[in-house]
Amino acid sequence: MENELQNIVSVLVERFDVEPKEFRGQTSLIVSPEKIFEVCQSLRDEHGFTWLEVLTAVDYWPQQEPRFHVIYFLYSIDKSMRMGLRVPLPSVSPTLPTLVELFANANWRERELWDMFGIHFDGHPDLRRILMPHDWQGHPLRKDYPLGYEEVQFTFNAEEIDRDKPYAKE
């Protein structure tokens, strides 16, 4: 099984100029944003990775180039193999092609990335906010977005906080 994964990796390295990495037994490829669609198509159609298991992103703010990494995990149910893909994206207008045609469940996952990170997906059929209210400002999972911590009431400051708390009326 290990050999088979190595073969697939070497084929992809040759064809798409990806950079393989291995950490704790998990192989991942670093793919450029232009090639992600072809790499996924090749993995799905030629190597049997039919299931998009994970689609998420990481923000490396304040680092600007690349600021985001979009992470894909594809799984092959027949061969029980998992392949990771990482796509670096710049800080200014991060954009990727959509994978909805290849994997139907990419639809909501890409919407989630738009909502949470502000990563745009070209060609997505319905790119709206999914988790936050539709009029929400900002993208919460970005590192420069505040957590929104409210001060906790203790005995010494309870009265002070209580005074400003916006209690509801009937």
Binding site: L131, M132, P133, P140, L141, Y145
Partner: peptide, 10 residues
């Protein structure tokens, strides 16, 4: 969805 988005990941 999102009516129970708790921000756990953040």
């Amino acid at each position: 969805i999102g009516f129970l988005h708790t921000g756990i990941e953040k």
